[in-house]
Every structure is written in C-alpha cells, then in structure tokens.
Amino acid sequence: MLRRLENMVKKSKEILISQLSSFGSSVHEISRRIDEILEFFVIPPVERDPFGVLRRLEHILDTERERFHQIIRTLAPKVNGIKMRNLENMLEAAIALNSLYRLTRHYALLGRRTKSVFMIMQLEMMLPQITRFAEAYYNAVVSFKDGVPIGDGIGALVVSKLIRRTNAVIKAIKNNTIIAETKIMNRKVLLIKALGPGGEIGKPGTIVEELLSTYKNPRISRIIMIDAAQKLEGEKSGEIVEGVGAAIGDPGPEKMKIEEAATRYGVPIDAIIVKESFEEAISPMTREIAEAADKVIERIYDIISSRTKEGDAVIIAGIGNSIGIAQ
C-alpha cells in the first residue's frame, strides 16, 4: 500500500514537472526544487484566544495564495493567467497527496520500529479510507492538468449557465470573483461566481458583504447560495436539497462575512446543495452532477417567484472552484 501511495506521489510529481517545464524553466531546475515545494505547510492561527481568529486565518490564507502564485511564477515564468491558476491547484493537490503519503509512512515505520501491533492494526484498518483520499487527490492533479470542471464547481456551473441563458452583463471583477447583473421575472438579479475558466474560488463572502452594504435601490431582499455538499454513504450523487444558511465550505472567513452581513441587513439566505462524495468533489465532474445544474436552475426560479416580489433585488452566489467553467 505504501508503495502504491509512493507511486501516486511520484506520478503526480512527474505530471507537475512536465506541466511546469512547458512554461519556461528547465526540467532539472524544477526537479531540484519540487521536493522542497511539496512539503510546503500552513500554520493555522492560535485558537485559544478566539478574538479575531477568522481575520488572522484570512490573512494567512491570502499569504498562502500569494506564495503559490510566486512559486508558479518562478518555476513557470511564461505561464498565462488561466493555466497559472490550474498549476496552483495542481500544486495544492500534489502537496495534499504528498502529506498523506508522508503521514502514512510515518505511522507504518513508527509501528514497525516500536513493534506496536496496535499502531499497525489501526493503520491497516484505516487503509481503505486513506486509499480513497489518495486516489481522489491524484485524480485532482490529473483534472487540474487538463482544466476539466470538477464536482466542486457545480455552484459556479449553475451561475455560468444563468449568465448565458439570461444574457447577464458582467458588471465587475473583484478579488477574482465576477459580479453579473440580469433580470429574472422582473427582479434585479446579481450573479456571483469565481472567475473562470482557471481554477479559482474567489472571495464570494467579500463580494456579498460589499453588495449588501452598497446596493440601495432596490435593497437586496434575498440571497440564494448554491454549493456542492458532502453526501452520506447510501445517498445518491447529484441529488438536490434545499435549506437555509450560508452554503459555502470555506475554512471560515468567507462564510462568516456572509452570515454577518446577512444578519446586519436582515436578509434571508436560501441554500441549495448538490450532494456528492469527497472524491467526486475534487475529481472531474460526473454526468449526474453536471445534469443537476439544470434542476438547480428550476429551483432558483421557484424560489425567486415564490419568495420575492417584483422589483426586488436578489443575489445568486454559485460557490466552488471554477476550473473549466467560464462566464
């Protein structure tokens, strides 16, 4: 099993090197630095004093993004915007796969060294789960290489389809997030998604917060959020479920901003989720999930017609990675 994991890491490294080398740097130079880069880490903020923890976390995540940007710029100087984001995503998946391998190897060797049967048994029992995660990360590396939409991009796909169908006008691009405006059933609708078709998640929270505070005429009366959500075993992939609350799976900062702003302005949030497994979320989008997009649009129309009035303004935020999905 450890060898299989090692092979996956090796293959993902090879893919990464071949992709990076096609944008300027020599294979030798990239190979020299790649091992060090694959051990890149992020230290989460102190949580014992929770005051301002999300602000600190956001700062750390911004710095991480900036660092990835720099790394790719150094290793692939001739890369363009879309491919750059895909390479950043590839690097993230390769780092996750490498960490999983190192952790598994650590416990396997520690169990062997200390002759601890319990440690080895625990690892043995965890192996099916570890393999699933490892295969998912490996598939992610491959899909980011090709620029294929992934399961997590369902929210972005829904908004992208709405932009096309309603001939929405793109009003602004901020923080790698696009804001488009359109009219649906005589309601002003503001559509939000991450900038595509590169692998980007944007900052939907920041945009929603800004729109709620600046949009006065008419005021925003409802927020509809669409995202992929983890299904439980036995549930069907691509199933659509409705609820309330901020449907966004970020580490916290963006979700917090949406909740804060919606509470401050008293705007209800509707959540539409599309169920999928963790592997599906980071692997190329399956047919079941892609076909759910049209059903989600029907639900959105239902919500708009039944829960808002003519002349209202509504925000529709499609959350998720926009790889392979333009606007």
């Binding site: 699933r132 598939n139 090709d146 620029g147 294929v148 939409p149 796909l157 992208s160 389809k161 932009i163 096309r164 595509g196 078709p197 992939s237 497994s277 592997e279 599906e280 692997s283 190329p284 989008m285 399956t286 047919r287 079941e288 999930i289 892609a290 997009a293 392979g324 999905i325 333009a326 606007q327």
Partner: peptide, 30 residues
Amino acid sequence: EGDYILKTVGQCSCGGLLYIDSIYVEKKVK
C-alpha cells in the same frame, strides 16, 4: 485540451453560435 464550459466553438447552420454547454466524465467515481 483547451475546452471549457461556455467556450464558443463555431457557428451553427442556423446562424447561431455553438458553445460548450457541459463537460463531464461517464465513469462513475467509486
């Protein structure tokens, strides 16, 4: 390679624009 959703890929015989509506894989993930 280079395909993405909403990419314009040509013109239809009716005069409309042909665009990529969906990209997905057939095989279901285990």
